[in-house]
Write a protein that binds this DNA or RNA. Sequence first.
DNA 1: CGACTGATTGAACCAGCTCAACTCATGTGG
DNA 2: CCACATGAGTTGAGCTGGTTCAATCAGTCG
Lengths: 259, 259
Amino acid sequence: MTEPKTDNAMTFAEPIAETCAGSGKSDCKHGRGENGCDDCKVRLFSVCGALEASELDELDRISQVKNFPAKTMLFDQGALAGSVFNVTEGIVRLYKSLPDGRRQIVGFALPGDFLGLALMDRYGVAAEAVTNVKVCRFARPAFLNYVDGKPHLLRRLHEFAGHELSLAQDQMLLLGRRTAEEKVAAFLLNLQTRYGRIGAMSVNVPLPMSRQDIADYLGLTIETVSRTLTKLAKEKVVVVVPDGVRLLSTDRLDQLAAA
Amino acid sequence: MTEPKTDNAMTFAEPIAETCAGSGKSDCKHGRGENGCDDCKVRLFSVCGALEASELDELDRISQVKNFPAKTMLFDQGALAGSVFNVTEGIVRLYKSLPDGRRQIVGFALPGDFLGLALMDRYGVAAEAVTNVKVCRFARPAFLNYVDGKPHLLRRLHEFAGHELSLAQDQMLLLGRRTAEEKVAAFLLNLQTRYGRIGAMSVNVPLPMSRQDIADYLGLTIETVSRTLTKLAKEKVVVVVPDGVRLLSTDRLDQLAAA
DNA sequence: CGACTGATTGAACCAGCTCAACTCATGTGG
DNA sequence: CCACATGAGTTGAGCTGGTTCAATCAGTCG
């Protein structure tokens, strides 16, 4: 019982991957491990999954691994889009703000998610690291140039954009027409599913983002999120643990989320 | 004063364009006017704007003009996506529903808008004609085949999808964080802008959709929409007229919509 | 005309918000 | 090691923006 650090069984993997982690190799040109894309853990379910080995080499050359400590900004809403990113580790919040400070989080990007899919010349949303984040960064001009003449990659980007659009429409339904309880239930199930897709399926759902983040994602207040989680806990649907929840009855949650 | 029809100056153009309207020509193979895409009023600001004359000929061959009377369904949520559409006349509502009947309209498609942008194998939303609607319909397999080998068209589709995604994110901010008054103000300005883009800029903003549609788009009830419009009218910001509103103070509306 | 449909208005209600107190974990410096 | 500060989360109590329920009104159509 004299552990210096908590033995919390639920924190989401967030190694403070320092630049050029690789294996301590010193002449790491692009700040990546020695094998570049080859040992990328998210490649297969990210946009890069559409590429051949030779194309990956080329991609390696225009990419750069970059770390963003928790709470730092990757880019701001409305800024010129100088780069596009592929998240490889950690969680990023994407949001829009009103002049008076009201904020709407439009999505949480997980490993494998691509930022800047729309390929527009300005970022439509701001992006901030929730946890420590590791990304593959591409200068936008180089990336656009790379995409030109690779219709299968463009096609893949388009597929991802279509998927994003579909998620956005689901979120509109949630924001406009669901109750607080339904929103929270849907959020938890949705996160669980997404963790599952990146190989972390479990009834333990880490919530590395703050209550405020969750509230701003669901169009609620921090108090309502807290009360709703407490209510679900009282009903034995979930257990609230430090930095996350354990889902006791996904059936009941499904019912609440009412698809 | 004995006009049989109202002399309402505000109805949005919605000719009951019967199939093969053209100029009464009878051997109209694809149900279009004699000049096909050439005299298409929306081509330049739709996805087809990316195409050369020769490519348009080819597109003509795989397309079909189709009319949907008001209130008919173009396709249902979750159905196999057999076709994609380009709206050329009228307004379409795109929506998602919950099992208990709650509905969220995720967008109104105006002339020039493309339905099925995501190119997914199932429709993510349902589409219903608000007014009488005229579309250019493409069988999805033929369209996909057509797109293959036309990267500039795919690029254009992707641009449109990116724009859609951006609009969806704006709508999330609106749904999650704006008040009723801000929602209505933003809606009216937004519609005015969109009419403007298709050459119908005016302070007169037709509202061919019902109050229920507006409510389901803004995440409100029909009564709140009605009350908010009445309030704006009392404050001389708008005038409510049959089938639409006249904007008296776009400045004040801008202020309310608070970007 | 009467029936029907969509919109407006009124009045009571309530889900979620606001404001405020309290808890709990972490950190800091004396 | 403890006193104290800090920041995130929870809980309580009262309030309110928007909903709900119920008339009423205004066109439109047969």
